[in-house]
Every structure is written in C-alpha cells, then in structure tokens.
Nucleic acid binder design. Structure first.
Lengths: 197, 197, 197, 197
DNA sequence: GATGAATGAGATTTCATTCAT
DNA sequence: AATGAATGAAATCTCATTCAT
C-alpha cells in the first residue's frame, strides 16, 4: 500500500517538529504545534511516533547516524590528518548552512541527548571515529604522539559545537564567509596552536 | 533584624536547588523537591525567590559572576599568555572538583542560559575578558596574530565545556589525575597544536 | 451473495471480542485488539458492528436469548420443581465449562447489562420464566407457598452468579468435580435450606 | 494544624465521588465532576487522592472494612445461627436504606473490585467470617453439616447482592417494607428452603 | 467487502504559583 | 518569617469512529 505516502507523512511530521522545536525549544513546544505546522491532525503525530520525546529522539538518532556515516567517510579518505580534521569541521559547521533549524534543535537540546539513551551509541561511535582519525595521524607521524587522542577528539568537537552555539544564539557572526573562516581557524588553531613560533 | 538568618535561608534554598537540579535536571525537578531538600516549607521558596526560573537564573548569575571575577583576576596577572590560558582552564575545569553538582546543572542547562537573558551580560563579559587575554598575548608577540581572537576564546571555552560534559555524563574519566591531565592537554593543544613539527 | 462468509466473519469478530473482553475487561480493550484477535482489518469491525458497545450488547443479547430459551425448555419439562431448578442451575453453572471466556465477560460486565437497555427484555423474560417455575411448583404443592416467588427467583440467580464470580476470579475451586458439587449444593440449599431438622 | 479541616475535606471529596459515581458510573464520571460536586478546585482532588482510581479503591476499602467489622460483631454475638445470618442480611440489605448511593456504586462497579487488588483482603476476610458463622452453626447442630460451608456463605452473599442489584436497577420494589420483607424471605429461604414439607 | 490512515474530542494528571493563617 | 492547602491552567496521550481508496 501507499508506503510512500506514509513515509512522506512521517518525514513531514519530523520536519515540522524540527521547525517547531527550533522556534522556542522542545519543552515549550506542544505536540499540537507540531501537528499544526505539519498540517495534519493531532492524533496523526501519535500514529507515527509514540510520544513527543520519540520525535526528539528520532531527530537526534537520524542526525548522529548521518554524522557517523560522514565522519567514517572522511576516515576512509586517503588524505593528510589535517585535511581529515578539516573535513570533520566542514561537516559539523556546514550543518548550519544546510539546516539551521536542525542545528538550533541539536544545540538547544544537547543536554537531553545523553538522557535519551538509545542514540548515545551513535554519538559514541562518531566520537570514536574522530578519535581514530587522530590516532591514525599520530601513527603516520603527522600529528604529535604526546597528546591524548581521545581528549583531542573531544576538544575538537567541543570547539565546533561552541561555534555552532555562538551562531544559534547570534553571538558570533554566521554569514557564509564567517562560516568558512571559522572552519579554517578552528583547524589551524587545533593543528598549529595559538603560540607564536 | 536577623538578616544573617535570612541570607542563610536563601543560601540554603539555593544550595538545595543546585542539588536537586543536578539530580534529574531543571525541568523534571519540582519546587516542592527543592523545598524538601532544603528542609523548609513549600511556600518559603516563593518568599525568597520569585519563581522556579529565578532559582536557575540566580545559579547562573552567581556562577558567571564569580567566573568573570576569576578570569579578570587572571587577566590582571603579569604572566605569559599561555599561563593565563592555563589559569582559565584551571578555573573552569577545577569547578568539577569544587562543586560537581553545580557543574552538572550548568552543563545540563547550558542551552537555557542564553535564553535566561539577564545574566547573559556576565557571560558576555567573561568571554570578552578571555578574548582580551588572547589579544594581549598577540600584542606581546606571545600568541600568533593571525588567529581571530574572539574565535580563539570561543574555541577554548567550548573545549573546556565539552570536557566538563564528558565528565558529567561519565564519558570521560574524571579522577583528580585525569582532571590535571585534561587541563594540561587542553592548554598544550591550544597553544602548540596537534601538528607534529 | 456469500452470506455464509459474511455470517462467519461476523461470528469470527464476535468470538474475538469475547476472547479480548475476557482478557482484561471491556473498557480496557480496544477495538483494534478485537480486530487483531480476529485477524481482520481495523475498519471491518465497523463494517459488521455499529460500535464497540454494539459488540458487547450483541454478546449479552445472544447469551440471554439462549438462556431464555434454555430456561423455557426446562419450564416445559414435566418434572418436579426441584429438578427444574436443578436444570436451571445446570444451565447457568454449566456455561463455565462450555465457554469460560463468555462467562468472564458476563460476570465482569454484569453491571453494564441493565444499562445496555435493549437486551434487558431478554433478561427480564428469563427471570420471569424462572419465577414461573417457582410459582408452578408452589401451585403443585411441591414448593412452599409462603415464599415470594419473584424474590426466590432472584435469590437463585444471585446465588448462581456469585458462584460464577467466584470461579472467574479464582476464589472458588472450579474443577469439573467442584462444578457438579456446586450445582447440587445450591439446589439442596435452596430447596431444603441450611437448617438442621 | 487544621487536621480536622483536612479530614473533612477528604471526606467531602469522597462523599462527592460516591454521589457522582452513583449517578452515571465510575467510567463516565470525570474527576472534574467530583471536584465540582464537592465544591473544590480540580487539583485538590489530587492533593488528597493519588488518582481517580484511588477514589474508587478507597470507597471499596472503607465499605468492606466496615462490612468486615459488622460481620465480625455479628459473629461474636451469642445468638442462634439463624439470627446471625439474619444479622448479616440486615447489614447488607440495610445499606440500601442507609446509603443508597454507596450501594449503587458498589453494585455497579463490583467487577472492578477484584481488580482493585488491595482491598480484596478485606472482602476475603468478610467472606471468611460469614463462613465461620455457618461452620459454628453446624458445630452447634443448628445448621446441617452436609452443606459446604464456604459455598453456603457465597450463596448467601450472592443472594443479598442480587437483591441489591434489583433495587439499584429498579427491577425489584425497594420501599422500606419491601426491604424488611426481602430480609426475612432470604433468611427463611436459606435456612428452611423452598421445599414444602 | 476490506483496509488502515486520519481525525479530534476528551480525560487524566502535573505542578507552578497564590494566599489565608 | 513560615506554612502548606488550595487553585486551575496546561499538556500529553488514547482511542472510538470515519472515510478515501
């Protein structure tokens, strides 16, 4: 049967959820707002999703799943570590241009994601991939061996997320040029450091 | 009159709020839980604080106020930029040892802080101070001039916050030794970079 | 047209309803549960029955209709009143062995039956038939004339229903032997009484 | 503190619940109806009772608790078994005159009581007491030894409940005179039986 | 006949806040 | 200052019923 239509409806509702959650945050959004935004009846949200929290969980899961894939693709790439890191930075910061509402939701509800539980695996895997990129770079002698690779991965991700946060709350400039510059700066900073030679 | 007692009661309630919010988050905590934790009557919370949100706001304001002071103190210090950055790292990461519950609340509710409005000033000032440290370092030739100082400040703070997040959600080791190591690693990473020479 | 198939479908759904209602009660059962149990589509239930309540009503009506017939058959029988009463007891208690799920539904939803309205007629007729058995017995001098016949009918039915209730809720033993014994005991009790001579 | 007022409020709400549930049944009654009937705010019902079901449960528990006490008091009485049975009949049927709304609720929601769980103990104890009355009568030679005492207790209770049901649904006359007559008839029926000598 | 997606009214429950004592 | 009973506005979720295919 019309599974295509069904998938579209699901997608439609999920999209609406992102839009609505991005507007005023998950908690202050009502399920009825999501339904209205999607242009469907109240109960249909519950036909496709078990609960309001499920909506958020699915948003997280999908995003991290795609993030994981993207990072792994970068990992498989045969380029210098620095370029790989730049690739990751581009993925994360690029999201702001591709789907700012999604970024708004993710940034605003970060704290909820570890509690959401299930998709934590995907997050952990993405961090692990990032860490492997660092380790590989160290093995190839491109990156310093003395630095804890796991911490380095966290620092990179933290830096990127903070920049997204700055954009979301309009405390950092986020025009296309700024995005490019931020990407380059972060990479430069993390590879060569702030110190003058 | 017994203003001391009053202040103590206020403090008692605020402490209880931190403990309770740290446990399961701001939203799932009830005002009655805070009252119970503080060992006072329900209504007394409203005698000292205007609303539940006021509690959170005050926690943020106080913390960022102290953070601002601490960063400014580091700023006034006459030591190399790298040591100043290390000082800031110590302040931020040290909070985990001084008051883990407070860190839990801050990390979990980060996204709320910019919405809270009023104390944003304090946050902005703290970031500005951090930025000035970078600028000063660049002026003194200790730090590279090519790097955007504001972005550098954000990257540093993001890195530190991410590490706190890792500790809060138990995804990074956080024993005293780990804390020290994290502090050194972050500073080393941000000053000299990941790249091998 | 395939009226046979139609009747079978109706029957199938009704059977499923009995099974489902017996499990957790009418109110907590969903129409979708009935459909699933019957192995038919959701909407088909509404093709054959006007509403969820109609299902219950039909269960009651059919049952009481058969009950009425059975009691009237006993009535037509040319045996002593005591044997007629025993016949009624056998019909009512025997249902537990024939169709325990049906008994479960009836016992659990007794209170609903008088509210259901339409099938009350059938219930009333069954009680009337039972009463006539008593009256006839009194007229033939087999039963005491001094006892209010209507009340006697109610007492008998109440006793039987309570025993079914005990079985349904597993508070009285209900193995085949127990059922036989219960039947005999009730009849003995109601005809000859508890009193020692 | 005003514990008296509190208890009164609880009582007030419970009373209102009985009135409302008696009107149209538990399921169709809304908590808001109970609040309105009691003349209190919506939330106060939840201040005193955990849930709508708790209201019903407490009604059952209290009633069966009082029933148990009353039956045990009859049990302690030093009168012939027949008079003790009459005493029990008076208690049960008398409820109709004392508190018809309560009886309406009990009769209508009987099926729910075994599911309610906790107060089942009280019901079981009441039945046990009734059974002991029969056993004692048999030991004293006042009642026939051949009859299963447990079944006799169930039959008695079933008969009484059925009569209450008849009154509740207006299918048996329930004027004061009728009540007295019913009481006598049931006792006479169960002790001496329907059979003519 | 058969399907199951779509609808939306309605009920329970929570809890921040108020206020009389 | 201190108490906690009282208030009532929301918000989530359920599910009987409808209807287009």
């Amino acid at each position: 049967m019309a599974t295509d239509t069904q998938r579209e409806k699901r997608r439609l509702i999920l999209r609406a959820a992102i839009t609505v959650f991005a507007r005023t945050g998950y908690h202050t959004s009502r399920v009825s707002d999501v339904a209205k935004e999607a242009g469907v009846a109240y109960g249909l949200v519950y036909h496709y999703f078990g609960s309001k929290e499920d909506l958020l969980e699915e948003i997280f899961r999908r995003t991290w799943s795609r993030m994981l894939e993207a990072v792994e693709e970068v990992e498989r790439t045969d380029v210098p570590a620095r370029d790989q890191l730049a690739g990751v930075a581009r993925i994360v910061l690029g999201a702001w241009q591709v789907d700012p509402d999604l970024v708004r939701v993710l940034v605003r509800e970060v704290a909820r994601s570890p509690q959401l539980g299930r998709e934590v695996d995907e997050i952990a895997h993405a961090f692990a991939a990032l860490e492997r990129i660092v380790v590989r770079g160290q093995e190839r002698g491109e990156l310093r061996a003395g630095i804890d690779s796991r911490l380095a991965a966290w620092v990179l991700y933290g830096a990127l997320e903070e920049i997204l946060t700055g954009w979301v709350f309009d405390r950092l400039a986020s025009a296309p040029d700024d995005v490019d510059r931020a990407e380059q700066t972060v990479v430069e900073l993390l590879t060569n450091g702030l110190a003058a030679d």
